[in-house]
Design a protein around this nucleic acid. Structure first.
Lengths: 230, 230
DNA sequence: TCGCGTCAAGAGCAGTGCTCTCTATTTTGA
DNA sequence: TCAAAATAGAGAGCACTGCTCTTGACGCGA
């Protein structure tokens, strides 16, 4: 290890620095990341970047993976930092953490959840990190169910195909979660994504001055739909 | 009119053709629309396009406006084509129309609701067309309220800032709509946007094979939250 | 110390948005 | 009617992009 490691270490540092510079560019210039600009910022010639990332998309993928992890960390930490029995508090904390992260990293959020780049297909290793936020949310529901604080909504007659699809998802991710509860959890996650996107993409610029309160109230409505006790 | 109209007519036809070709390019190549490619497709030189659209952004804006109108037309027509008294049917029809339009025009949907292009700011005349779909949705709620089929949810204690913001929105768009109902309508609209985006951007590719049924069930959940009678 | 592998640099290709100039055509006004 | 004005398209050119290929220098293991 000692011999080759000096070169390997430099290489790892270069990769990190490129990602850092790219993230900075992303924050200021938005999604149209320019490899040449990154190289210029690093005092390199553009072709040298290709020693570290075979294409622009690969650099973007690396940034996407880091972003997913950042968001996942934030959401999970917020959930973990709240009293396990306070289901509604955990829901709100997780939602707020996602929003806070998005507001702090708008360009990275747009990279994750904005319109997909035409030629670009997210590689498979983004799937798992991408599931962390919604998994945290439905994890709250599962905890509520197991300790009796939350009841599966009854009277929901899920159409059989929907029930089957949701059952498959539940089997893979959170065994034992009733499909009706998973459906409502996913509605909450879907609405959370919509809330953040609307705010970040400027859709309630003029309409809603009190963003924090509006956000909490909207996520609270979904908590009501799910049946999280007040 | 006859004198200048021949040239004016040709000009109008050119503008239409450019937009049509651009829309075609948008559908195949995604959001990164190339003026030069459009010009090439029309047998023109790229600089000639600038006689009709002063910049690429202006062409995009024209496409955005048409897209908003197409979506607005679809949603309003679906609502108008349903029995006025069938609130839930109207809700589902409007939601489905939005989804169908999005699935039929994915690139245009991404243009409207995807991540904003960094340098690009939507001009003010997009605001009104953009409001048509959510307005149609809350219009259903207003109708239900006036004919007694829908009650404003009580027990909702909206935080004062949220209530004030929503009251202002209601005053400008749909006078008389209680803030609590508007809040739930916006939750529904937000979730609808999330649903369509998730589906279109490939987020439930593997997870949900039965998209139609899932969609209807999810929008039905929001109808429940709003209180639309079954 | 020698040779292999890695690295940065530079030139170059094809593409982009956009500007400017030049020429041909159409429209307009006296 | 006929010249002046407005408009249209073509072409060259600028600065930029992602990416490839070649060249020469350097570090590293044998």
């Amino acid at each position: 290890m000692p011999a080759s490691s000096i070169r390997a270490r430099v290489r790892a540092e270069m990769i990190d620095e490129i990602k850092a510079v790219a993230r900075r560019h992303l924050a200021t210039d938005g999604a149209n990341l320019s490899l040449r600009a990154v190289a210029r910022d690093m005092g390199m010639v553009s072709s040298a970047i290709y020693r570290y990332f075979p294409s622009r998309d690969d650099l973007l993928t690396a940034l996407i993976l880091e972003a997913y992890d950042g968001l996942g960390d934030a959401v999970e930490a917020a959930d973990a930092g709240t009293d396990r029995a306070d289901l509604r508090g955990r829901w709100h904390a997780a939602c707020r953490a996602a929003r806070d992260w998005a507001l702090a990293h708008p360009a990275e959020y747009a990279l994750l959840y904005g319109s997909p780049v035409p030629g670009y297909a997210a590689p498979d290793d983004t799937v798992l990190p991408a599931q962390r936020p919604p998994l945290t949310l439905v994890g709250i529901l599962r905890d509520g169910l197991t300790d009796g604080r939350l009841a599966a909504p009854d009277g929901d007659e899920l159409p059989e195909p929907v029930r089957a699809d949701l059952a498959e998802i539940a089997a893979g991710l959170i065994p034992g979660l009733p499909e009706s509860l998973l459906a409502r959890g996913m509605a909450g996650w879907t609405q959370l994504f919509g809330l953040i996107s609307f705010e970040l993409f400027g859709r309630l610029n003029r309409a809603i001055p009190h963003r924090d309160e509006y956000f909490d109230h909207q996520t609270g409505l979904m908590a009501d739909l799910i049946g999280l006790p007040r």
